[in-house]
Simulated assay, not measured.
Amino acid sequence: MRRAVLAPLTTAAAATAAAVVVLALDPYEPGHFPTCPVLALTGFFCTGCGTMRAVHSLLHLDVAGAWDMNPLLLLLAPFAVATWVAWTVRAWSGRPRRWAAPPWAIATVLVVLVAFTVLRNVPALGPWLAP
């Protein structure tokens, strides 16, 4: 096995371990996990608020519940998995990375993250985007 594959495999092992914890401990029950520090300090929902509950719902095959907690997670998860698969294949084959995201793509992602954070804190949209 190529040494370069250790990084993506370690990442997969860490993600699996985290998923097992989130599967075993219900984040809907108080006291199992800490409150989001951004929410605790500012009173505003951050981009990641509700992500742990969304993952818990996904692990229980409740896609609607996951969507209610953090719709952005469901939209970005396929890209994260595809990126991990590409990283693993590239590491296994020994090929160097040939493509980097262009600046406009990075800027677009940042704009989407900021817009999602702002919109989920607008009272009129609160019931739809808030966790």
Rank of each mutant, 00 (worst) to 15 (best):
Val89Asp: 05
Met69Ala: 12
Leu58Tyr: 02
Trp67Pro: 05
Leu73Ala: 04
Met69Asp: 15
Val81Asp: 11
Gly50Leu: 11
Pro78Asp: 08
Ala82Met: 13
Ser93Val: 14
Pro78Asn: 05
Ala86Thr: 15
Thr83Lys: 11
Ser57His: 10
Asp68Gly: 13
Trp92Pro: 01
Arg90Leu: 08
Leu59Cys: 03
Thr83Pro: 02
Trp87Pro: 01
Val89Asn: 06
Ser93Arg: 12
Leu73Asn: 06
Arg53Tyr: 07
Val89Leu: 15
Ala82Gln: 07
Trp92Ile: 09
Pro78Tyr: 04
Ala66Val: 00
Ala91Gly: 04
Leu73Thr: 06
Thr51Trp: 05
Ser93His: 09
Leu73Glu: 01
Met69His: 05
Thr88Asn: 06
Gly94Thr: 07
His56Glu: 04
Val63Met: 06
Ala80Lys: 10
Leu75Phe: 08
Val85Arg: 12
Leu58Thr: 02
Ser57Arg: 10
Leu76Glu: 04
Thr51Ile: 13
Ala64Gln: 13
Trp84Glu: 01
Val85Asn: 07
His56Lys: 08
His56Thr: 01
Pro71Phe: 08
Met69Tyr: 03
Phe79Cys: 14
His56Asp: 08
Asp62Arg: 06
Ala54Val: 05
Ala66Lys: 00
Gly50Lys: 04
Ala86Gly: 13
Leu73Gly: 03
Ala54Asp: 03
Ala54Ile: 01
Asp68Gln: 13
Phe79Ala: 15
Gly65Asp: 04
Val89Lys: 11
Ala77Thr: 05
Thr83Val: 14
Pro71Glu: 13
Ser93Glu: 14
Val81Leu: 15
Leu61Gln: 11
Asn70His: 02
Leu72Glu: 03
Arg95Ala: 14
Trp87His: 15
Ala54Glu: 09
His60Trp: 09
Pro71Ile: 10
Val89Cys: 05
Asn70Arg: 03
Leu75Ala: 14
Trp87Thr: 14
Val85Pro: 02
Trp87Gly: 10
Pro78Arg: 09
Val63Ser: 04
Ala82Phe: 10
Trp87Asp: 14
Arg53Leu: 04
Asn70Ser: 02
Val89Glu: 07
Arg53Cys: 13
Ala64Arg: 14
Leu75His: 01
Cys49Ser: 01
Ala80Arg: 07
Leu61Lys: 05
Arg90Gln: 14
Asn70Ala: 09
Ala77Glu: 10
His60Gly: 00
Ala80Pro: 06
Trp67Thr: 07
Leu74Asp: 06
Gly94Gln: 12
Arg53Gln: 12
Arg90Trp: 04
Ala64Asp: 14
Ala80Gly: 14
Trp92Phe: 13
Thr51Asn: 12
Phe79Gln: 13
Leu75Asp: 03
Leu72Asp: 03
Val85Asp: 10
Trp87Met: 15
Val63Leu: 12
Ala80Cys: 10
Met52Phe: 09
Arg90Cys: 14
Ala86Pro: 06
Leu72Ile: 03
Pro71Trp: 08
Val81Cys: 12
Ala82Lys: 07
Leu61Pro: 00
Trp84Ala: 08
Gly94Ile: 12
Ser93Pro: 00
Gly94Phe: 06
Leu61Phe: 13
